[in-house]
Design a protein around this nucleic acid. Sequence first.
DNA 1: TACCAATAGATGAGATATCATCTAATTAAG
DNA 2: CTTAATTAGATGATATCTCATCTATTGGTA
Lengths: 149, 149
Amino acid sequence: MINNPNYPKSGFGPLLAQAARQWRRAVDLGLQPFGLTEATWLPLVHLARAPEPLRQKQLAEGLMLDGSAVVRLLDCLQKNGLIDRREEAEDRRAKTIVITDAGRVMVEKVETAAANVRGHALSGLSDEDITTTLRVLSHVARQTKTGAA
Amino acid sequence: MINNPNYPKSGFGPLLAQAARQWRRAVDLGLQPFGLTEATWLPLVHLARAPEPLRQKQLAEGLMLDGSAVVRLLDCLQKNGLIDRREEAEDRRAKTIVITDAGRVMVEKVETAAANVRGHALSGLSDEDITTTLRVLSHVARQTKTGAA
DNA sequence: TACCAATAGATGAGATATCATCTAATTAAG
DNA sequence: CTTAATTAGATGATATCTCATCTATTGGTA
């Protein structure tokens, strides 16, 4: 096993999972005062940054999440008055998601907290290392996507 | 925002989460024929590789998981006859986890499937990129650990 | 020795995510 | 035009994971 050149690679999966778990935990902790979590915060930012209102389907694609997961996250955000669902006239199956004013205010407030966590997690790493990692993670995400034989 | 040098970094968290989610899904799919998942497989490998039997506490530390999570994963593995809990005589609070023969056989069979997923996810990446990513992920995990101010 | 804090494991509750399925509405085919 | 396939959202069931708590033991200290 020691002589197997793939040895360090075998730790990739567990390490990836662990880093993701702990990153989430740290973000959740930082957003706790605002009543948000990483999961509920991301859709909000995504909506805030979109040049035009999105449908739930589009949001799910952007977040790379199952549609049903987005449904429930939006339920939560709507209950807290941060977004609204607007039925479309042209296609009565679809709903457009719009951020409320409260939602935009929240995004502003919360972005700092999220940036702090990110800053701390990445502090001490070179831009080059981070860029490489971003590229590797993108590759992994692409390769493990459903249907990627 | 475009002129902000931190712009690409802001995608780090979501990308990390996404890559981890999809990696897990891919592994779960590959292990499905064996009735295992990434979550239940990892404790099994950990136990198989340990030079001596571990306590649940030690296993939890090794997996960087909450103790209560390990309790339930072990419940599942035990129910399937892959591990056994053995009460310790010296400390009657503790239990030593031992892999059953069936468990060892399972590890053998399943390791190939897991390696295939890993191989596919990492295919096309240079060893150097992977090494860098492993280092960055370790750093992130350390920095986001509980108590890491 | 009697009491109190710490430790190992277990359990309950809540947040996410996935898959399977359902309903309503739209589109395409015959 | 009627029917079949598709699409957008929603819901139910299940799997993890975390935190808060609980029980049983152990160990240290007055």
